[in-house]
């Protein structure tokens, strides 16, 4: 395999470098092994092209489940073996694309470390089609530092994790403003009647620092409820958001939402 050509292709750095001469490039198992082993010494400043065989293997195993699984395991094992932050970053980006349940343990182990948590979530978030990945993120929530919490909370919201509603409701009252804002936002994204209830309860009495986030989350939640056919819950949320003390643009948005809800059968 010509790794120089593969690097050109996968990194696509050249001018409109989409037309290269790598069409026939195929995974060279030995080159892939060497590239994976090189992760042990990989660090910032090392030419990323040295890992090009891994990129090629990802493309070549698209229709080769066994080959893909083997590649994933090798990367997850490398992650668990203790590698540099740069190598972790590289592996997590690949697991984001090809990771499955078999990578969750190695990724979950990084969630509580301030240096690796975000990049582990970067991968886990996209493995959330596998329930254990979402479980791992949820289980990390009470264990992580205040600094890491908003990110974890954001992932739970993005994936509409209904099991997190109780914890997020509590965190909406957290003294850390970023945590409270993220919790409100995620409740909005989750958009269940329970989440709506929590946001309704908070909307009128939210501290100034999180007021905008709670109102915005309420509007998002109402839209979700409406999309799910729960017109009554949506209208109840909108009513709470058009009350006194809300900024004018929120009141107008709530009124608009009520009209939309009312016109919906």
């Amino acid at each position: 395999m010509n790794s120089k050509n593969i690097a050109k292709m996968t990194l696509a750095a050249g001018a409109v470098a989409l037309a290269a001469d790598q069409a026939s490039a195929k995974t060279d198992a030995a080159a892939v092994d060497t590239a994976i082993k090189s992760l042990k010494t990989y660090d910032w400043g090392v030419d990323i092209k040295t890992l090009a065989p891994i990129e090629q293997a990802i493309i070549d195993t698209q229709k080769d489940a066994a080959g893909r699984k083997k590649l994933e395991k090798a990367l997850a094992d490398m992650l668990a073996s203790g590698i540099s932050r740069s190598a972790q970053d590289y592996v997590c980006r690949r697991l984001r694309t090809i990771g499955t349940g078999q990578s969750v343990k190695a990724l979950a182990a990084l969630l509580c470390d301030e240096k690796s948590s975000d990049i582990a979530r970067f991968a886990l978030g996209d493995i959330c089609c596998c329930p254990t990945a979402l479980d791992a993120i949820r289980e990390a929530l009470p264990k992580v530092s205040t600094k890491l919490r908003p990110g974890i909370i954001g992932s739970l919201g993005t994936h509409r994790d209904k099991k997190s509603v109780a914890a997020l409701t509590k965190l909406m009252g957290d003294k850390d403003v970023l945590t409270a804002r993220a919790a409100a936002h995620s409740l909005g994204l989750i958009g269940t009647p329970d989440a709506a209830k929590a946001l309704c309860g908070c909307a009128g009495k939210a501290p100034e620092a999180i007021k905008t986030s709670v109102a915005d989350a309420g509007l998002i939640c109402a839209e979700q409820l409406l999309a799910d056919g729960d017109k009554a819950a949506a209208i109840a949320l909108y009513k709470g958001l058009k009350g006194d003390g809300m900024p004018k643009h929120v009141k107008v948005a709530a009124m608009k939402g009520m009209l939309t809800a009312a016109s919906k059968k």
Binding site: Q62, R96, T97, I98, S117, D118, R121, F122, L124, G125, D126, C129, K147, L148, R149, P150, G151, I152, I153, G154, S155, G157, T158, L178, A182, H185, S186
Partner: peptide
């Protein structure tokens, strides 16, 4: 599913979308 993983990405804390 693989393409759907590339629709968005998980943001670094504290940024959420």
């Amino acid at each position: 599913a693989e393409a759907n993983r590339l629709i968005d990405y998980e943001r670094r804390t504290p940024w959420v979308l």
